[in-house]
Design a protein around this nucleic acid. Structure first.
Length: 124
RNA sequence: CGAGUAAGCCAGAUGGUCGCGUACUAUAUGUACGAGGAAAGUCCGAGCUCCAUAGGGCAAGGUGCCGGGUAAUACCCGGUGGAGGUGACUCCAAGGAAAGUGCAACAGAGAUAUACCGCCUGCCACUUAACUCGUUAUUAACGAAUUAAGCGGCAGGUAAGGGUGGAAAGGCGAGGUAAGAGCUCACCAGCAUCCAGGCGACUGGAAUGCUCUGUAAACCCCACCUGGAGCAAGGUAAAAUAGGAGGGAAUGAUAAGUGGCCCGCUUAACCCUCGGGUAAAACCGCUAGAGGUAUCAGGCAACUGAUAUCGUAGAUAGAUGACCAUCUAAAACAGAACUCGGCUUAUAGACUUGCUCGUAAU
RNA sequence: GGCCCCGUGGUCAAGUGGUUAAGACAUCGCCCUUUCACGGCGGUAACAUGGGUUCGAAUCCCGUCGGGGUCA
């Protein structure tokens, strides 16, 4: 795994998972949790920061649709990231039913998953 | 006013808060720029890169009225012919079936030539009728010959008519004939030759000759075009047990490049020497290009030329989003991935212009 | 992103212009059996889609849609 120095990390920067091996690692060893719109995988990474990846299957729609829901997932995660415990790799996978949801419904679904997985600092 | 037809244009805007990619700098509360008309399908054509500076032959594939435009095209423009529409106008893979081969199910007598029915002629047999002759005889009977009609058979002529079929030997009329037939004639249709016009497709005209099924998005013939692969090409640095560099041997046989085959070309192996520890990433290619806009000139037009002016994405888990306010309600199809020219397909709503037809008024 | 292949009943599939689209499994009904299975008889059910060529198209040509493979 690539060395990642602590000094490069800014507090509110979003770090994305880019390597195929990282994705496979999370899928293989991480825990999964889901609801009707989203599937979430998460795994401790011992880096002190959160890294996030998004995946939208071709079955969801054409490229415009897929890009839009990736952005909606990204934007919602960006708004929630500051209230999360740090040190996890998280992957969100959109399910087919997500095309029925708008921005707020995606955000609520994501918040419920993060609360259920105890990553969300509710009391802050 | 209504209906229609053709062409063009836009593809939410403005403001605020948070956020993303690239470039730059004075390095931070920074500045600038940041998806489409189809970015799509990947159907054509090119640039570019590698393989011979892309070579020869066969095969295979594509295009297919004519002329022009273009880097090129299967695209575009103008024309010809055909089809549709009252019209504006639209559509057409539109060479050759008279070079040859194949196929044409079922139906039908017969499918590229036929003779089933029918019509006509001749011969034979039978029946009937008429008339004549002979024998017996009162009418009448029998026999023979001739003629006519009918039915049947045989031989021949015919392609008018029948009914099938997508298609049946050019159409229709008259003459003609035993019956018929382009057999002959008039008109019409088509083909060949000729003359005139046009760069040409083709158009017009007279005479002579001829009458030919369809199918080439069946094989084929003719004319023209096409070498293969694709930015995951390819290169730089780095690099192994498989990769690289240098030198030698060999010019046979083998393998690879070469992705239809053969020839040709290039490289490799076989030996010796050098150097070297990572597994999937980094960088280049990567955006200024057959570019856009305006004016003038040429051209019916597509387009071309000159001048001026503009600066316009470059990601690599892949950059444009979220929310609020106003515009009546912000919504259609849809996301660059090397680039460009076309085609095809998808598309809410809004706008502009030309033309045609109908109705009414003047 | 590039390149290529394939779509025939519920499933597997034959069919390369011509009569009603072959067959197997599955399914439905009847018979057989005390019942089930096996077996026998019969039925339902399809050329992805839109055009074109042709007298005639699952087949030939073009477009669209869907599915799959491959290339570092």
């Amino acid at each position: 795994m690539r060395p990642f120095l602590q000094s490069e990390v800014y507090i509110h920067d979003m770090v994305k998972i880019k390597r195929s091996s990282d994705f496979k690692n999370v899928y293989r060893y991480g825990k999964s949790i889901s609801n009707q719109y989203i599937v979430m995988y998460y795994l401790e990474n011992n880096l002190g920061i959160n890294r996030v990846g998004f995946s939208v299957s071709k079955k969801v729609g054409k490229s415009v649709i897929r890009n839009r829901y990736k952005r909606l997932l990204y934007e919602n995660f960006r708004l929630l990231d500051r209230d999360l415990f740090k040190g996890y790799d998280i992957i969100f996978i959109a399910r087919n039913k997500i095309i029925e949801a708008d921005f707020y419904m995606v955000g609520n679904a994501m918040r419920r998953l993060l609360t259920k997985s105890s990553l969300y600092m509710v009391n802050k």
